[in-house]
Design a binder for these strands. Structure first.
Lengths: 101, 101
DNA sequence: CGGTATCCACGACGATACTG
DNA sequence: CAGTATCGTCGTGGATACCG
């Protein structure tokens, strides 16, 4: 459990993964999709995901430079978990309004 | 997703919930089950879970005082999520050994 | 465009001591 | 037994500036 939680925890991580579930995305595309997230934190999250082999990145040759991130096979394993997170969150909200602090 | 993640995130939270999934537990029982967790943090986590209506607590009258925590109906909703966390963590470990930093 | 370096602020965590 | 109070420490996130 701690392993899976470590994989998806950290603010923004689930949102980044959600974007990548829809297909490969460049650094810039992720920034646009998550505007309130600073470049530093996005970079940190992606680095961690890459270290954990959940995401891989490809540098495109040429200028301007372009780097595309995509889920690895291991990363795809997270899909059911993300769906379950969504399902559970939804169920909690339906049952009670007290969840947000 | 953020709602569900907020419910289970925080170090130790999943472990506390896991204990409570097995049935009601007193503060002391939880401390024994999670020896490396300080009373302060356990208290903080339980307070938060109670605030979120995921857990409720009952004071037993008499001495020594005894307080029992148990999952609420909403808390029970988290069971599939915890199972999925376990399942996914297991799958990740099987596929790769690089997950722990 | 895609990052890293630096600095700062805040919150989380642990240890210890104390209360009802 | 079941907490709360206090304190020090460390990690995390944000802003800004800069590099390849």
């Amino acid at each position: 459990m701690e392993v899976a939680l470590a994989a998806v925890s950290g603010r923004w991580t689930t949102l980044i993964l959600r974007e990548l579930m829809h297909g490969p995305r460049s650094f810039g595309q992720l920034r646009v999709a998550l505007p309130t997230l600073s470049a530093k934190v996005l970079s940190e999250r992606l680095t961690k995901l890459v270290r954990h082999d959940l995401v891989e990145c490809r540098r495109q040759k040429g200028f301007p430079s372009q780097v595309v991130y995509r889920l690895t096979t291991a990363g795809q394993l997270l899909r059911p978990l993300l769906i379950e997170l969504y399902r559970t969150g939804d169920a909690l909200l339906r049952q009670s309004r007290r969840l947000p602090d």
